[in-house]
Design a protein around this nucleic acid. Sequence first.
DNA 1: TATAGTGCTATCCTTTTGGTTACTGGTAAC
DNA 2: GTTACCAGTAACCAAAAGGATAGCACTATA
Lengths: 138, 138
Amino acid sequence: MGADIIAEQEPVLTAKEKCMETGDHKDCLGVIMPVRDALDVINGKWKLPIIIAISRGHKRFRDIERNIPRITSKVLSKELKDLEAHKLIKRSVFDSQPVSVEYTLTPYAATLNPVIDALYAWGTQHRKTIFGSSEAQG
Amino acid sequence: MGADIIAEQEPVLTAKEKCMETGDHKDCLGVIMPVRDALDVINGKWKLPIIIAISRGHKRFRDIERNIPRITSKVLSKELKDLEAHKLIKRSVFDSQPVSVEYTLTPYAATLNPVIDALYAWGTQHRKTIFGSSEAQG
DNA sequence: TATAGTGCTATCCTTTTGGTTACTGGTAAC
DNA sequence: GTTACCAGTAACCAAAAGGATAGCACTATA
């Protein structure tokens, strides 16, 4: 149903606005807590890369594994289970010959796009900053 | 200082656009790598909460410690060093009586605001989803 | 003198994460 | 028959993260 919710009815504040709202800098828990909730779901180095890989059409276990550098079967297996438990991905088994397994993103995983985009943008410019910092003088 | 850079000169693509750009779903490394670069800097449960606390005006070690639930001195100490090494915070020692230490954010840390905002927004709605999922039916 | 606060560090321990190698049972290719 | 692919799991181990408790040198307060 409501796939096109617009944040009009209920003003969603940015982290900064939320803090400003409290008047001074006493209560930062109102910001820290939701951020930690998010961090608890996408914790570790692997979850977002896995989501990215699946979103690019890599649905099969080995396919995902091959497309994420240095991940191992064991880790991938565990992280996929975590993601499934958080309802971000769906595991489907097909009764073909041989049996094949496909992982797909749930619509809920799509709500993480702004997070991924922010991280992608920051990571991109951070990499530039790092590689640029040797020739620029500190 | 260039605080108001507009992404006009160089089109910064979203993660999704970057992928679409490659034509099909073969190369997701171009997205995964920057995201991992970002993740490597803000890894663990503590870095962003610490940045948030400092941005709210909690500059002193104990002050930060008191405002982040369940963090310990040891962990805070280590994370502060990491953040300093990544040039996200600055440690200043004042020769007062007694000596006082202050942690402040660098301008570079402010570039993480979109990340924090995205995480805050997602974490907020995720919390609602979790608490709402018991009464709403699947 | 005792207590509390400051900015940490040290020690010890547990949990989590990650890595390696090996293995399963079925199918298909050589 | 041998090899390889598939989707994992098991066993073992190392490293990193995190938690608990204690302590230090110093200062301020009572």
